[in-house]
Amino acid sequence: MMIARIARQRRVGVGLAAAVVLLSGCATTQSRVDPFEPWNRAMLEVNDVVDGNFVKPVAEAYVKYTPEPIRSGVSNFFGNIDDLFIGLNNVLEGNGYRAGDDFGRVLLNSTFGLGGIFDLASMMGIEKHTQDFGITFGKWGIPQGPYLFVPLFGPTTLRDGTGTAIRAYLGPTTYIFGNVPLRNSIWGVGAVDARAQALGAESMIDAAALDRYRFIRNAYLRARRYQVYDGKPPPDEDDGE
């Protein structure tokens, strides 16, 4: 149901993006990747208000009042669930060898790592990978579509956002924890943990960027390109000195 809706939205979005590109015949690269820039900029402002007043203070308090071992336990717990999906995506991309590592990590960390609280696998040298549905779709040749900034979720594209939605839909918090209040609290802790992890990078962006919106967008799109091309992206057009 949800996937169908997302698929429908995607078609609409892709159609819209194509129309925009066609209408602006001499479109620059910028508007081709970001046809909804005015809308996205507004969303960044919405994000800053909501995040700055509610989410960020919670994340900061969490970092301040929670001892580091507990925080890393929380990160590891959610990271362990993530590893399951990282493995799944490696399967979908035909990276059997890497998927083996990922599932091995889940097995090891879920058991000896006490439900994922300890990342034993990393200590033993089984590396965590970077992988998600957006990257898989990219490797399958699906174009990224227009860039989107979604309040509280941050930078994404139609393709990557679809991947994130699928990931959220698949859970597994949705069905592992039948108890709704418990599931919601786990969800909440996961969100705070994710937000807390971004605090460092975020203050760096504030310090570094002339135009925060553009900085986030360009860095996001380049990082994703790099991931889709497995660390070997083709050179840019404007790489000359």
Binding site: Q30, A209, L210, D211, R214, F215, N218, A219, R222, A223, R225, Y226, Q227, G231, P233, D236, D238, D239
Partner: peptide, 14 residues
């Protein structure tokens, strides 16, 4: 994969 210099080039160019 994000080059510091390239990321600034986009901003500087604009």
């Amino acid at each position: 994969g994000v080059s510091l210099v390239t990321n600034y080039r986009d901003e500087f160019n604009d």
